[in-house]
Each structure stands twice: as structure tokens, then as C-alpha cells.
Design a binder for these strands. Structure first.
Lengths: 109, 109
DNA sequence: TACAAACATTAGCATTGACTTATGCATCAG
DNA sequence: CTGATGCATAAGTCAATGCTAATGTTTGTA
């Protein structure tokens, strides 16, 4: 069972459309720096930085410093608490939780 | 691929801890009326009603009128857009979420 | 009919949160 | 060393939102 705090941070972070768009772009890019994220985001560099901080605190992304650039990437297990939460509370899935967990274990022990 | 509006409504609705607690309680109860939801929620009946409206508009719950009481229940496919979203954007999760969706299809085609 | 019960809705208030501008801090180029 | 670049942080503003109190609406009951 995922901690309430973890789920809360993830849900809150992904609730905002702009921030969610940033997250989606990071995922699709594999790795991307802040400047590239800013261009086409529709908001200022400051806003993007604040969104990145939120996503990072939620455990959804990780950063890598290289000179003056900071590259962000999605964390593989970032969405895991969300999956666990759905598995735990997903009403008609209750019986299948065991199967799901087994499946996840096989993929990422 | 789930509509942005759908994902947005679901994420926003589940982002609030109080509202998420209400949703979880509805799931665990199978079916529950407003009065029972209010007791132990920590907020007023008005607040609960407003949370219920948000959850309903997000497609997460459905209501059933019986006399003066209104019973709420979780919608089977309410969280489906969230699963779809993860399968579409979750690069690292694509395979395992696909399996999750297969499970869901088996349960509720 | 009149009153109570169950829930929804409205209005108002306080807080949160997303944004911009301005500034700080480190790194690279000259 | 000096200025420019890339990004983070601080401060302030405005809209969104979660809450309560009050009221509305429908249904059951005496």
C-alpha cells in the first residue's frame, strides 16, 4: 500500500495541465534540458523551473547536472505508487490485485 | 488515448486529500449514502456534497436516489482514462500497464 | 397540512497555487 | 577578470479552490 503522502504529492503534481505537459514531454524526450522545455511550454523559464521542482519532489523525475545545463528524465518507478493505489482501491480490480502484483514483480523485481 | 479534459478532471478531483478519502470510502463501501459519508469525514455535509459533485463530474462515481437518501457508488470504468494515460505516456510502464488494461478488459469488457 | 430529515446549492471567506518579474548563483567564453 | 548563459529562487499578484454558514428542494412522517 502506497503512503498517503506519496500519492498526495503525485496527484497534486499531475493535477496541473501545464505541469503534466512538462512531465509528458520529459517522458517522450528521454532526457531534456530546461531551455528546451521552456520553448513551446507557453510559460516563462521560472514557471518551468517551479514545475520541475514539484515533479522532482513527487519522485516523478530526476535531474543530471552537466555544466550549465540541467537534464531531466522521468524516473522509472515514479508512477509506481499511483499504480499501487489504483490496485488497492480499484473497486472491481480487487480480486486481480494479486495477479497484478505478481506481474509487476516479474517485470521489475 | 484519453482526452485531456477527462484526465484533467480526474487528476484534479483526486488531488485533494479529503475528496480522495471520500472516494476511497465509497469504493470500500460498495454503496453508501451521504450522511454516512459525512460522519467521520471531518468536514460538513455541504463540503461532502461539493466533493461528491466533483467526483461525479469526473466520472468517478454514480448516484442512486432512494427516497430522501442518495447512495453513491464507484463507477467501474471511472479510472480507465487514468490507466490509458499511463499507458500512453508512461514509457517505462508501457508493457506493464498494457497488461493491467488486459486484466481490466477481462473483468469489465 | 405542517414539520422534520436528507441532501444540494449559494454566498462569502480564507487559503492555496500558478504565474511573472526581478534577482541570485554557478558555469562557460572572450 | 568580465560579461553572458543556464537555471534556481524570492517576492508579489491574481485566480482557483476548499471550507463554513445559510438557504433551497424534495421526500417522509405525525
Amino acid at each position: 500500500m502506497p503512503s498517503t503522502a506519496s500519492i498526495d504529492a503525485i496527484m497534486r503534481s499531475l493535477a496541473d495541465p501545464t505541469r503534466r505537459a512538462v512531465f509528458e514531454r520529459i517522458i517522450q524526450s528521454g532526457e531534456i534540458n530546461v531551455g528546451d522545455l521552456v520553448s513551446g511550454s507557453g510559460v516563462t523559464q521560472s514557471a518551468v523551473s517551479q514545475h520541475l521542482r514539484s515533479l522532482k519532489r513527487a519522485g516523478l523525475i530526476a535531474d543530471r547536472w552537466q555544466g550549465r545545463n540541467v537534464f531531466y528524465r522521468a524516473k522509472p518507478k515514479g508512477l509506481a505508487p499511483l499504480v499501487d493505489w489504483m490496485s488497492h482501491y480499484g473497486i472491481f480490480w480487487r480480486e486481480r490485485v494479486a495477479n497484478l502484483r505478481t506481474l509487476l514483480k516479474e517485470i521489475d523485481p
